[in-house]
Design a protein around this nucleic acid. Structure first.
Lengths: 327, 327
DNA sequence: TTGAAAGCGATACCAG
DNA sequence: CTGGTATCGCTTTCAA
């Protein structure tokens, strides 16, 4: 059924060892032999069993990607970048969606541990302690979160928030509401931190409208709270929430940006397609994916002394959902 | 470093075989022994190496998912459903994005073959012949395409088109344009076929506006052709293209649905969030993913005589982008 | 009920 | 430059 190295060896009339070498280190073998082996392999349609190989080499050629929700358009973008970069290094990708369930993360990681050379944890929801338990067990790079001792790739949320707040301030806004995402999300805390210091710097009021699910429905659910607050502008944890706000605002006849300005975070595809366009803080999603793979490869190659931390830039994208304050 | 079955055996004071049995067939072993093994395994944090196991059992516990473009929101939805269903059966998922490159598919499949028990090919772009070469090599279920001899899961595009055309006809439209997707896409041909017969049944004119990329940009690129045609309504291969049309129409001041009605296909999240809402043919994406995994598990369990074909229903979702004909 | 030993497919080392 | 052999971690006969 399945063709193994033995079959190739037999057909080529050489030993297994030679087949192995001819295929892996072509120059350590006589050209004639190499040719015979290559022909035999081609004829039989031989492809090495990477699982068997990993047993002896200790390398699987796979990386594991764990993320909370593929339905959030932010993640597919990142995963796509990861895929592209991984393929360049001849790595295949295991994908696990935890469905925003923190309890699923650790078992999933464990189940994959022996099958991958390292992990990319995107916005992991598990506790610091649970994750730290993996230190030394498997190379791990964390995205959108910082946990010592793992290398991390994050976006410069503070700077993004600074840009967003400066923009709103320039438009005349003085009272901003923030719709927070999941409490378990490091990004959420990071963004909130940046927002607090940015509003403080401008001496503006920050009204925290509470946490909600990072989905359209999550935004819709808290829209009325925002309207009832004295805020003239609202910044959402992410674009999906912002679009949920849009929805409910439209349903209630609340004009954006005339009555209230809205800013999102992530710059997912949707942001540019709704009307009015959603002003948002763009994150370099492709760069995040790429950087993460690079860091992982590095940390697999050699134990790093101090974990690398890559912080990628953010950029405010101004669209129609923000405008001057009307009184 | 990594804890193996030997370590457990040593700590429990039994043989490897007993450890294996205690963990796999708990009832074939004396309760006392089982207890000792379980404790030892827990204490050491033992998790079997699935790659090593696959070597002997022939089962990997993995399934491979290949798709053309994770950036198309349709696919993440399907993948998420696949994940959920796969996890239920204790399968892990390998994901490969081919970036719409037909040439990448076959090598990717081959590279994964030994590491997975079967494949889910989503909207594969490779030729029938290339794919047929895998028949008998690995269990394969094809999504959004039909290729003998593989089981397939498809949407009832013909019925979806029938609903869309009937809707437009009722609104008074008589000339419909179709913006086609990739020539290599089976879905595209399937949808076109359905559309042709539906328009013929209503004695309506069908203007084929040519093929374009299944992306927002693809839609934007052909929008002017559609406007220049005598069509009063346009059906796009998918929602992304439809949204690209929206964009360009808005830029040119062409009113939707007053000047032209627009219908998409897939019902991605975006469709409900743009203004006006995009009328579209919804596909049961979760069901597709679920059904695909089910079929794959079945076909792995036993060679089926005739490949199963699951055709899932489609449903027209009417939103603001379609309206009565104005003259 | 348990242990010893063979073997899955590939690589790596050591002789020759 | 090539072949024999041990080995990776695990499962599975086969005897005891």
């Amino acid at each position: 059924m399945t063709v193994t190295i033995k079959d190739v060896a037999r057909l080529a009339g050489v030993s297994q060892s030679s087949v192995c070498r001819a295929l892996a280190n072509p120059d350590q073998v006589r050209p004639e032999t190499r040719e015979r082996v290559e022909t035999a392999a081609r004829d039989l349609g031989y492809y090495p069993n990477r699982a068997a190989r990993s047993l002896i080499t200790g390398r699987t050629g796979n990386i594991g990607v764990v993320l909370p929700d593929l339905a959030n358009p932010f993640f597919p973008s990142v995963v796509k970048a990861i895929q592209t970069q991984a393929r360049r290094a001849d790595y295949a990708v295991f994908l696990s969606d935890t469905d925003e369930d923190p309890a699923l993360e650790v078992p999933l990681i464990r189940a994959l541990t022996k099958q991958v050379d390292g992990f990319l944890l995107c916005s992991p929801r598990a506790s610091d302690d649970e994750l730290k338990a993996f230190a030394g067990q498997a190379p791990i790079v964390v995205l959108n979160r910082r946990i010592t001792p793992f290398p991390s790739v994050t976006a410069d949320s503070a700077d993004g928030m600074r840009q967003a707040v400066a923009h709103l301030h320039a438009l005349g806004h003085r009272r901003i509401a923030y719709v927070a995402g999941p409490r378990t999300s490091w990004s959420n805390r990071d963004r909130l931190r940046g927002l607090r210091s940015a509003t403080a710097a401008h001496d503006m009021d920050l009204i925290e409208a509470g946490n909600t699910a990072p989905t359209v429905e999550g935004g819709t659910a808290v829209a009325d709270l925002v309207v009832a607050s004295p805020a003239t502008a609202v910044i959402a944890y992410n674009d999906l929430i912002a679009l949920g706000l849009f929805n409910r605002f439209a349903a209630r006849g609340i004009a954006v940006p005339e009555r209230i300005s809205v800013i999102g975070f992530d710059d997912i595809l949707l942001a540019g397609l709704v009307h009015p366009g959603l002003t948002t803080v763009a994150i370099a999603k492709e760069q995040i994916g790429r950087a993460a793979v690079e860091l992982l490869l590095e940390s697999m190659a050699a134990e790093q002394e101090r974990p690398a931390r890559r912080v990628l830039p953010t950029q405010l994208i101004v669209r129609g959902s923000t405008g001057p304050l009307h009184d």
